[in-house]
């Protein structure tokens, strides 16, 4: 029994840390979303409880709608379609190469990983330089191919930011898939091959069901990371032109730390929490054990 007590105590450091540095600050943050808390200006002097006023204001704010829609595009485009699918494809390619003993798989792995550990700030400015209309490398390549220059950040800013984020974040998914694929017993594949299943069906009916837990957590993790992505977009476009690449996380940052309206900024963060939860519930439902 002493053992039991002792090990239950093992969870305390984690609980303690999370409570004081995350749960309480979060509650404070959520509370502040119901107030007019501000760092500067006349609102800073007379602090008031507003109830739902911030949220009502938010739903009437057209920039909120724009950034909400942008966030959905950004998350679906760069996390789900981009990082998740591309990470999966690369992992499958490497896994295939490993099984067939084709050389060079380590290089692919290393290169994708490099993109991930490249500091985000540098990655952002690099991509903004590559997209540059006059001096960008991307337009230089188009030039060599004899194609007209494209004003990447002017005409397709969201797509440009999405591509840059795919570049930066794919490694995480690749890493998880690569290791997860190794846990699927080879005998299962062999058996289904004999039964005449093609590659897609093997993936759909053997790999996915076995790996559903990890798929769920991977999706939750990349969705959260993408939802919170701030630095990359800020470095490439600063949310512009206009509000075309302003996601909720940029909008919240602007409101809280540039306009110093903390209460309003926190309300945006709470909305982001709700979106995250909705995505999370969808994933869990989608990959639930049947």
């Amino acid at each position: 029994m002493r053992r039991r007590k002792f090990l239950i105590l093992g969870i305390l450091p984690a609980i303690f840390l999370m409570t004081f540095l995350f749960v309480l600050p979060s509650l404070w943050g959520i509370y502040s979303s119901f107030t007019n808390m501000a760092l500067l200006g006349k609102e800073a002097a007379n602090f008031r409880f507003l109830g739902l006023e911030n949220y009502i204001k938010l739903f009437k704010d057209s920039s909120f709608y724009t950034s909400f829609v942008n966030t959905i595009y950004f998350v679906v485009g760069s996390a789900l379609i981009g990082q998740f699918l591309l990470g999966l494809i690369i992992a499958l390619l490497i896994d295939y190469a490993e099984k067939k003993k084709i050389p060079g798989r380590g290089i692919v792995y290393g290169i994708v990983l490099l993109a991930w550990i490249n500091p985000t700030l540098i990655a952002g400015f690099q991509w903004s330089a590559m997209y540059d209309y006059y001096y960008g490398t991307l337009n230089k390549f188009l030039n060599l191919l004899g194609i007209q220059k494209i004003n990447w950040l002017g005409t397709m800013p969201m797509l440009s930011v999405i591509v840059a984020n795919i570049w930066r974040g794919t490694a995480f998914t690749m890493l998880i898939w690569l290791s997860a694929l190794k846990t699927v017993p080879l005998e299962l594949y062999e058996a289904s091959k004999i039964d005449g299943a093609n590659a897609f069906n093997r993936f759909r009916y053997i790999t996915v069901p076995i790996l559903r837990d990890i798929i769920t957590v991977n999706l939750i993790q990349i969705t959260m990371a993408t939802m919170g992505a701030f630095l990359l977009i800020w470095a490439i476009t600063s949310g512009g032109p206009g509000l075309k690449t302003t996601t909720l996380s940029l909008f919240a940052y602007r409101t809280a730390f540039e306009a110093y309206r903390l209460g309003y900024g926190s309300a945006i963060a709470v909305i982001m929490l709700i979106i995250n939860l909705v995505f999370g519930i969808i994933y869990i439902r989608l990959f639930r054990r049947r």
């Binding site: 540095l21 600050p25 404070w28 996380s249 963060a269 709470v270």
Partner: peptide
């Protein structure tokens, strides 16, 4: 709960932590 706890973006908690 441990997994979902991180769903609130850091932006909402950074200021209280700063003050603390």
């Amino acid at each position: 709960w441990i997994v979902s706890i991180r769903m609130l973006p850091p932006i909402a908690t950074v200021l209280p932590v700063y003050l603390l």
